[in-house]
Design a protein around this nucleic acid. Structure first.
Lengths: 198, 198
DNA sequence: TCGAACTCGTACATCAATGTTCGAGTTAAG
DNA sequence: CTTAACTCGAACATTGATGTACGAGTTCGA
């Protein structure tokens, strides 16, 4: 027993037991679904949706705020991965269209998540994670302006905001039943083409 | 004393005392300001902002829901009055521009009010009050389409939603400090012209 | 199979919001 | 001036959410 300190925690210093990890995943999945669908979600709801005891949830996420952060962190990672996967070569106008068609629902989901999580995390924290994503879009728009494909008579930040805004609007229209999920990307692309062209 | 029943309430059956009416106004004013600025406003906050006791507030508005309804009702009336005041003659494109320049801040404020009040009143109630306003915009857009000034390749409801969406975006940009209140209407009008033209 | 890691329900303390009651004071209106 | 309407603070009951503590049971991992 001289070297009996080879406990599990010593052997897997940064690891978790498989069932714990499974529960963490379930919690994050359910949390994302709930938080991105409506405001005012409670910790208890997330736990129930995940099929997990409330105490278990608190065991992994010490507070509501920590849970919220984990959800946002995960969403940002997903977005970054999506950007890596998309082809941004060629004319900026075409690249933007590809990005929209592939990611508009992701943009929308994360925007809702962000809206419904405000108040749980500090604005600074939120900004620090969100800015890198904005920069990617910004760079693409600037490229389009250099190519002469995008207008330059309106502020750059406005073009970005308008883009997000219309993505959000498209999602609302689907929810309201005025637009089908198939029509949405076409409508969005057509609208943004009109809006972005010089 | 045969006719001694000439009490105040009998004499002013539908009227209120002047100080009561004054307080009601203060409550609605403060409530509008708070509700349209952020979510999660409590009744206590509204009372305090109005400089009125919480009990007094409950005396006039039996519940949080009733207060919310009164706020929305008032906002709708204001919007209707604004529509009556605006000149909708001439080409639809110009009329829309005039409306935007005169009412965009009102549209924005009421949209926030609506967003932050969801959950306090039923969706049906909200719809029933909001629809008449949408119809006015709808009629104007259809007129523009008949004149050949507005595009017809996108759903009508989408054009309306996009309009509201961009108004909201413009307000966000002002809040974020990316747009001045003077620039906002021009940016908005320019964007919607691009978006609406065939 | 053994022990540590993990889960679970129950129970508890805390906090904030809603809505009500009471009684004493103030104010408008006739 | 008289009275009814109104206001106010303080106190109370209720509800729902957050976070913690405990102890008994289950499951993973070596």
């Amino acid at each position: 027993m001289a070297d009996g300190k080879t406990t599990a925690s010593a052997r897997r210093p940064s690891g978790r037991r498989a069932d714990a990890q499974r529960n963490i995943d379930k919690i994050l999945d359910s949390g994302l679904k709930l938080y991105s669908s409506r405001p005012g979600v409670s910790v208890a709801e997330v736990a129930e949706a995940a099929g997990v005891g409330r105490v278990t949830l608190y065991g992994h996420f010490p507070s509501r705020t920590e849970l919220a952060k984990a959800l946002m962190e995960r969403a940002f990672e997903e977005t970054n991965a999506a950007w890596e996967a998309v082809d941004t070569d060629g004319p900026a106008e075409d690249a933007l269209e590809r990005i929209l068609r592939q990611q508009w629902y992701l943009m929308e989901r994360n925007r809702n998540l962000r809206d419904n999580i405000i108040g749980d995390v500090s604005p600074q924290w939120l900004r620090s994670r969100h800015d890198p994503i904005l920069e990617r879009i910004e760079a693409l728009i600037i490229r389009g302006q250099d190519e002469g494909a995008f207008r330059t008579d309106l502020p750059l930040s406005w073009l970005i905001t308008a883009l997000y805004s219309l993505v959000h609007a498209a999602a609302d229209e689907i929810t309201a039943g005025h637009l089908t999920p198939e029509q949405a990307p076409d409508t969005l692309v057509a609208s943004l083409r009109s809006l972005y062209r010089p």
